[in-house]
């Protein structure tokens, strides 16, 4: 089952919409609360990253019997140094975003901690693609 959601850069009023929809779907499928929690934490962080940093993006969620694969592809500034971006506490968020309580440099590490498989590919000046896979068993 494949669903897609569009995300607008800068529109914090809708941040979390895709996460909320996917959470409902997983609940209806009787996926365990612990797994749902990991999906929601990872996806919300990734969704907020698009809102906070990119111009726009698309989230695709592919749910199978064995797990969920989330691909978040954005058009945006890209990440020059991914290792640096993965460091806890490192952030390039604007002061406006930080004042809202986002941009504390915890997003990407939170995503990685909650994913079974995580991949990030970025081109400066073009955009970033984050792939998150979480297994339903174990």
């Amino acid at each position: 089952m494949l669903t897609e959601y569009n995300v607008e850069g800068g529109d914090f009023t809708r941040a979390g919409y895709a996460s909320s929809q996917i959470k409902k779907t997983l609940k209806n499928l009787n996926i365990s609360p612990e797994i749902i929690k990991r999906v929601v934490v990872a996806l919300y962080e990734a969704e907020v990253n698009i809102v906070a940093h990119a111009f726009k993006g698309v989230i695709s969620a592919d749910i199978s019997n064995s797990g969920i694969k989330l691909v978040l592809e954005d058009e945006g500034p890209g990440i020059p140094d991914i290792d640096m971006a993965m460091t806890k506490g490192y952030s390039t968020a604007s002061s406006r975003v930080r004042e809202m309580g986002f941009g504390a440099g915890m997003g990407l590490p939170n995503i990685k901690d909650n994913a079974d498989r995580f991949n990030i590919v970025s081109r400066v000046g073009e955009g970033t693609r984050v792939t998150i896979e979480i297994d339903f068993a174990g």
């Binding site: 914090f12 009023t13 941040a15 979390g16 609360p33 929690k37 934490v41 919300y44 962080e45 907020v48 809202m100 309580g101 986002f102 504390a104 915890m106 997003g107 939170n110 901690d113």
Partner: peptide
């Protein structure tokens, strides 16, 4: 918000000074 996402527990009462919709 990332801290709350990552570290709070289900059923917790959240105390904050943030007032926006997120």
């Amino acid at each position: 918000l990332s801290d709350v996402m990552g570290a709070s527990k289900e059923g917790d009462l959240w105390i904050t000074l943030q007032t926006h919709k997120n």
